[in-house]
Design a protein around this nucleic acid. Structure first.
Length: 215
DNA sequence: ACCCAGGGTCATA
DNA sequence: TATGACCATGGG
């Protein structure tokens, strides 16, 4: 029913997000991916698996420094080691996945946001991809793509944009997950640089979005 | 050498 | 509330 979604799906196909073996791995990845490329996050996830510490108990047994060493490829490794331990501590104290999954989405969301190092986007990644809740993830790519389509103001508050998407779309986690992944795929493919990218000849002021919708 | 990547926190005004 | 500084590796 959604024209842009159908178009993107036709162009790029199924995206297979979030790439992970377990919900817990998704949550760890959501912290590690912050302001970093997926290849870097993936590398660090691999190091955690190699060290056999990609589970709540083992992670909590690591010192800040030893975890930071494992996280080195993601950048901000000291910061993210601290954030990851904060998160996993909260996760265990609240009974893990089964227990947390009993909470209503708004309650779970607030709880996530109260963890130091978990902001709106990271919380929504976790809610959508780990807990399969119908929460639309708004990231820099979403702002860029829809901003250039003339559909939104790129610097609008996070909650404002999230509400707009969730009001416009049926509350379907599979739809939200694919849509977000497709937006990322499209933004990367069309133009990985600034608005006036000369490589792709993109017109940042195109009001009808023809530059995005044209095949 | 520079820019960017699937952000968030904290200090300042 | 709204900017700015800071965190830091890897690839283009």
């Amino acid at each position: 029913m959604n024209v842009l979604f159908d178009r993107l799906q036709h162009l790029y196909g199924l995206q297979h997000w979030w790439p992970a073996e377990t919900p817990f791995e998704i949550m760890v990845g959501a912290v590690l991916i912050q302001n970093t490329s997926w290849t870097n996050a993936e590398s660090a996830i691999g190091r955690l698996k190699e060290a056999e510490v990609l589970n709540p108990e083992a992670l909590l047994g690591l010192s800040l420094n030893s975890l930071a060493a494992l996280l080195r490829p993601v950048g901000y490794f000291n910061l993210k080691a601290s954030r990851l331990l904060n998160f996993v501590g909260w996760y265990c104290e609240n009974g893990g996945f089964q227990s947390l999954n009993l909470l209503e989405t708004p309650v779970l969301r607030e709880a996530l946001l109260n963890v130091k190092g978990i902001g709106p986007e990271t919380a929504d990644d976790i809610l959508l991809y780990a807990f399969s809740r119908p929460v639309f993830v708004v990231d820099a790519y979403t702002r860029r793509v829809f901003g250039r389509l003339g559909c939104l103001f790129e610097d609008a508050p996070y909650e404002c944009l999230r509400a707009a998407f969730e009001e416009a779309l049926p509350p379907n986690p599979d739809l939200y997950g694919e849509y977000h992944a497709l937006i990322v795929a499209h933004a990367k493919k069309v133009c990985r640089s600034r608005p006036s990218c000369e490589k792709c000849g993109l017109n940042p002021d195109c009001p009808t979005g023809q530059n995005f919708l044209a095949s």
